[in-house]
């Protein structure tokens, strides 16, 4: 496994702030009136943690009738490997889109290492590497060209881009497909090339929405190793996933969200207590049915 030579930006506070409880949901009435940092009537959240890799405060987002995110506040400590888990439709993608500058929140603030993302997007986005879910790539470019494009858009010089592109292609095992057009890549390869494009500028914080979807087990292990290395050298990673087992093994912090709110957040051990993360998750989110009434599905009664 080749090291990518990516040393994340500025951080030196590995495993900095760890606190639980304070970032549980701030549920309030639906937002109204002018744009403020917090909907009126909601209890005031603590001020943003300016040292955190990502600090979300009172994020609200409404799509038509549906309120997707309801007063989300969350701190991602610098140097942490942070898992965001929740059932489908919990608001993971909406939250991460707002946290990375892809979707303007109705209310609330996002700070990336103390820089207000929505006030000073250029500066804040420089420290972010983003893998959005559900967007396409410029797939008429080859793998090499796509990573190069991402690097050049970030304002990097040609030589650095070239050497890092080669490193990334090697690290993600894409060297032999470097000259193939991305449109002809498999789903897993597409995920990997998108991740490589997000890493090219050695961001201090990586925000990855469902990075392991459609990725084969070998590649997934590769990616996990790259991400673990990256965190070990001081970077911060936020991943969303609904594979609890993966999050429990990989991450040191986790937030469980459902219906646009944080149900629990903190280090893995703090959140899961004595249980497995999956059981804790099911307890918190609820709605599990027992599987009764499928007696006919048992093969012993297949004759009926």
């Amino acid at each position: 496994m080749a090291r990518t030579g990516l040393v994340p930006g500025t951080d030196d506070r590995v495993g900095g702030h760890r606190y639980v409880g304070a970032m549980t949901a701030q549920a309030g009435p639906p937002p109204s009136g002018t744009r403020t940092s917090e909907p009126q009537g909601a209890p005031a959240a603590p001020p943003p943690d300016l040292g955190a890799a990502l600090s979300l405060r009172g994020l609200w987002k409404r799509f038509g009738e549906k309120i997707a995110v309801k007063g989300m506040s969350l701190d991602v400590p610098a140097g942490s490997f942070y898992g965001l888990v929740g059932p489908n439709g919990a608001g993971k993608t909406t939250t991460l889109s707002m946290a990375t500058g892809l979707l303007r929140p109705d209310f609330g603030t996002v700070h990336v290492r103390g820089t207000d993302l929505w006030q000073r997007p250029d500066e804040a986005k420089r420290g972010l590497g983003v893998l959005p879910d559900g967007v396409r790539l410029f797939d008429r470019l080859t793998g090499t060209q796509l990573i190069t494009y991402a690097g050049l858009l970030r304002g990097m010089d040609r030589d650095t881009v070239a050497s890092r592109t080669a490193d990334l292609l090697r690290a993600f095992d894409l060297t032999k497909d470097a000259n193939t057009y991305v449109v002809d890549y498999s789903a897993g390869m597409t995920k990997k090339i998108a991740l490589a494009s997000a890493l090219i500028h050695a961001p201090g914080t990586l925000v990855l929405d469902e990075p392991f979807e459609a990725v084969d087990p070998v590649s997934a292990a590769n990616i996990r190793e790259i991400l673990a290395d990256y965190v070990a050298s001081g970077g911060t990673v936020v991943v969303s996933s609904h594979v609890m087992d993966l999050v429990q093994r990989m991450c040191d912090h986790v937030a469980i969200i459902a219906e646009g709110q944080v149900l629990a957040a903190g280090t893995i051990d703090e959140v899961r207590g004595e249980q497995s993360l999956e059981d804790r998750f099911v307890d918190l989110v609820g709605g599990r049915s027992t599987g009764e009434g499928l007696g006919w599905l048992r093969s012993s009664s297949a004759s009926s």
């Binding site: 892809l102 983003v130 559900g134 396409r136 790539l137 410029f138 991402a150 858009l153 494009s197 997000a198």
Partner: peptide, 12 residues
């Protein structure tokens, strides 16, 4: 560009 445009937004 369709949703590939996200790259222009996330790279600011």
């Amino acid at each position: 560009d369709y949703t590939a445009f996200a790259l222009h937004v996330s790279t600011s």
